[in-house]
């Protein structure tokens, strides 16, 4: 009984807190999620949109995007951006495939994530030390990594013949729940915790909001920016592991087209493109929205061209709603 009262009070406090510091902007993504889900559920009832297997499908599709989105949320929070995630996915899938064959699934996954860490460190160091915007640095490394991935196996896909790897990172499941979904939940939990409960997360936000002030407060903004870019790359490489696990291959074009989807997911989720504001839960929900749109529009039988148009329109509306400027949202905060 007491517990209930306390939980209620906590919820109320949390709600008050939320509506004070960001207005309703940050709820747009959840509202959009529910509305899109409802619309598809009604329109596509007979096509089995809500069937367990289709929902699982959506979850599997969303998983790598969500993992990348969580990483990207940190890059954006620190007022950087990481355009190299797509090629990092590809390279780590290939590295995983190569390493799994020789050293087993554990080393395979570790090597892939190591690739991510190295890419992120390079992105971060160049951005910070050479003082080039991360937008340009990662545009460059995007090309470089993509080229390396293409050379690695002469544009051929590399099979992964490890049941353990596939079961653990993609094809397997725990009860009815795909391991992809479980990994995504773990990444979400870690990201959310790091952003809201660790000093590091707070320092990332401070650095992204106002680097000069953060520096004047004594933060090592260089190190923080490097670490945020590393988180983004490591997340991308883990997404590469998940894709490799699901498809049982490493290939040079995995993740190639995911960059814009990821950015859309993160921004719909309430993370600012300009730093200082981020939501991990929003990013994951944004990824779910993207996967749901993909799935629903296909089930509706739209041509590919019309799918693209419909998806683009919905994204613009969602982003417009979630990106209202702070000055407008001030009105929400006046009691």
């Amino acid at each position: 009984m007491r517990v209930h009262v306390r939980a209620g009070a906590r919820l109320k406090r949390a709600w008050a807190r939320r509506s004070e510091d960001g207005g309703y902007r940050q709820y747009v993504v959840y509202l959009a999620f529910v509305s899109i889900l409802a619309v598809f559920a009604l329109m596509l009832w007979d096509d089995g949109f809500l069937s367990w297997s289709n929902l699982l499908n959506i979850g599997r599709q969303a998983a790598p995007i969500a993992v990348m989105a969580v990483g990207m949320a940190f890059a954006l929070a620190s007022a950087e951006i990481d355009l190299s995630i797509g090629s990092t996915v590809a390279l780590s899938s290939l590295v995983a495939a190569a390493a799994v064959g020789n050293y087993g699934f554990f080393i395979g996954a570790l090597a892939a994530v190591g690739v991510g860490a190295a890419v992120g460190l390079a992105n971060g160091l160049i951005t910070v030390k050479v003082r080039i915007p991360s937008f340009l640095v990662t545009l460059g490394t995007l090309g470089i990594i993509s080229g390396i991935a293409r050379n690695m196996n002469n544009l051929q896909s590399m099979p992964i013949r490890s049941d353990a790897f596939s079961a653990l990172f993609g094809a397997g499941s725990l009860g009815p729940i795909s391991s992809l979904v479980i990994w995504t939940a773990i990444v979400f939990a870690i990201g959310h915790f790091a952003l809201h409960h660790l000093r590091w997360g707070r320092h990332v936000l401070a650095t992204g909001a106002n680097r000069a002030s953060a520096k004047a407060a004594g933060l090592s903004t260089d190190r923080i920016r490097i670490s945020a870019l590393m988180v983004s790359s490591v997340a991308a490489s883990f997404a590469g592991v998940l894709l490799a696990g699901r498809l049982a291959i490493g290939r040079h074009d995995l993740g190639e087209n995911d960059l814009l989807t990821v950015i859309a997911a993160v921004v719909i989720g309430g993370t600012s493109l300009f730093g200082g504001r981020a939501s991990v839960a929003g990013a994951v929900t944004g990824a779910l929205i993207m996967a749901m749109l993909n799935n629903g529009l296909i089930l509706m039988g739209l041509e590919v061209a019309d799918q693209l148009i419909a998806r683009g329109l919905i994204i613009i509306v969602a982003v417009a709603l979630s990106m209202r400027t702070p000055s407008e949202s001030v009105g929400d905060d006046v009691p």
């Binding site: 936000l205 407060a217 200082g276």
Partner: peptide, 20 residues
């Protein structure tokens, strides 16, 4: 250069001095 606009009062007061 004193405050970070998007952080709240508590977060600003304890910036880089956070209690753990």
């Amino acid at each position: 250069l004193s405050l970070i606009d998007s952080l709240n009062v508590v977060e600003n007061l304890f910036l880089n001095r956070e209690y753990t």
